[in-house]
């Protein structure tokens, strides 16, 4: 029972990791594969939104998430974390970005730090699926269509009108209530006046 709780040693990733392996072939073998992943993680931290093949995006996402969560957990005075950042970020100025920009941005976040979308693949072109991988809170416009802001979309028109209709009803209800009260009060006041005159 002296086993340490794993979540205390390593932070849990906040997205569903695919259990099966991704076939990332590389002519240079495992080293080349790692180099490719390092380049991808570096590019993600640098550009904040990248488009690439799905499998590689899926694999690199985990390493990027781990790097950011470790940076938040241990800060920049932690040797192991610094070594990790040094390994994954090929451009060294990005180490500063990691600790000075990304850590403050994601400190209080309780969702994953990255987002991944399926992207359309080129036709005709290479058969592999594509994906867009991005850091949350990036400065680019959203990739998903926004259905809530444009009030001219049909469902928004319908909802706005329903809301107006509801308010109109409530106002009419209040008006009738007030009218009935004001018609009642003079009747209540009259007998009092009579008693006084008596």
């Amino acid at each position: 029972m002296n086993q340490a709780e794993v979540t205390k040693l390593m932070s849990q990733l906040r997205f569903a990791v695919r259990p099966n392996k991704r076939n990332l072939k590389n002519p240079d073998g495992p080293e080349g594969r790692l180099m490719k992943l390092r380049k991808t993680v570096t590019a993600l931290v640098k550009h904040e939104r990248i488009e690439l093949f799905y499998q590689r995006a899926d694999e690199a996402r985990g390493y990027a998430e781990l790097l950011i969560s470790d940076a938040i957990r241990h800060g920049d005075r932690h040797k192991a974390t610094m070594e990790l950042a040094d390994f994954w970020l090929l451009e060294k100025q990005l180490v500063h970005k990691l600790f000075k920009v990304l850590v403050p941005r994601f400190e209080n976040s309780n969702v994953s730090f990255t987002r991944m979308y399926k992207a359309p693949r080129d036709y005709p072109g290479i058969y592999y699926d594509k994906a867009v991988l991005e850091l949350r809170g990036n400065p680019y416009p959203s990739l998903l269509p926004d259905f809530s802001q444009n009030r001219n979309y049909i469902h928004n028109i319908l909802l706005d009108e329903a809301r107006k209709d509801y308010r109109r009803e409530k106002l009419a209800e209040m008006a009738t209530k007030l009218a009935s009260e004001t018609t009642e009060t003079p009747k209540a006041a009259e007998p009092k006046a009579e008693t006084k005159s008596d």
Binding site: F147, I154, H155, L158, L159, E161, A162, D165, Y166
Partner: peptide, 15 residues
């Protein structure tokens, strides 16, 4: 392609 929460759609139906 327009997805609406069923409560909101319910108010539309009601109206």
């Amino acid at each position: 392609g327009f997805v609406l929460n069923h409560v909101a759609y319910g108010t539309l139906e009601e109206r």
